[in-house]
């Protein structure tokens, strides 16, 4: 996965190097601009068993700032914001690997360094008894819940 490009980011930003669960590293660029989730939309994506994106819908493309070509074939953690505690994602994977549905509030990182909050649900795609991948659907969160999570997540590192 490519490092983020300063040319894509507006205004001042912080540069960080993050390491993902698979050991890979990426330089990300983060600013403090929030993009509000639009009304009436669902952000939908599918991944394979390894979390590599296989399908994104139009709302995913619009909110992430990436093109479909940039998204399909890369790990879903391209959206991982450094303010999200690793424990939240461990909970996600532990839950979906056990065949259950995971729901939670997630702060996502955009291509332009800004962020957006979502209320996410992830389920395993089971075909003929086998997990073939995962479907994730994000919807508009309540501001009250976002404020609660924004206060809680820094304490979970």
């Amino acid at each position: 996965m490519q490092d983020m490009n300063p040319k894509d980011v507006k205004g001042e930003f912080r540069e960080l190097t993050v390491q993902y669960f698979d050991g890979s590293k990426r330089t990300i660029l983060v600013n403090d601009v929030e993009v509000l989730y639009p009304e009436g939309r669902l952000i939908v994506s599918r991944t394979d068993k390894d979390g590599v994106i296989t399908h994104v819908n139009k709302s995913f493309i619009e909110m992430s700032g990436y093109s479909e070509q940039e998204l399909v074939g890369v790990p879903h953690h391209i959206l991982r914001h450094p303010d999200m505690p690793p424990a939240a994602f461990k909970g996600l994977w532990d839950t979906v690997h056990s065949g259950k549905r995971w729901q939670g509030y997630v702060k996502n990182l955009r291509k332009d360094g800004a962020y957006y909050w979502v209320y996410a649900t992830v389920v395993a795609n089971i075909r003929n008894g086998e997990v073939t991948g995962y479907t994730s659907v994000r919807r508009k969160p309540s501001r009250k819940k976002v404020q609660e999570c924004a206060a809680l997540y820094p304490t979970l590192f």
Binding site: L42, V44, R101, V122, V123, N125, R127, T135, S136, V137
Partner: peptide, 11 residues
């Protein structure tokens, strides 16, 4: 249809 069912199950 399976995809739509998965999607509905998230909702």
């Amino acid at each position: 249809v399976e995809f739509m069912i998965d999607l509905m199950s998230t909702l």
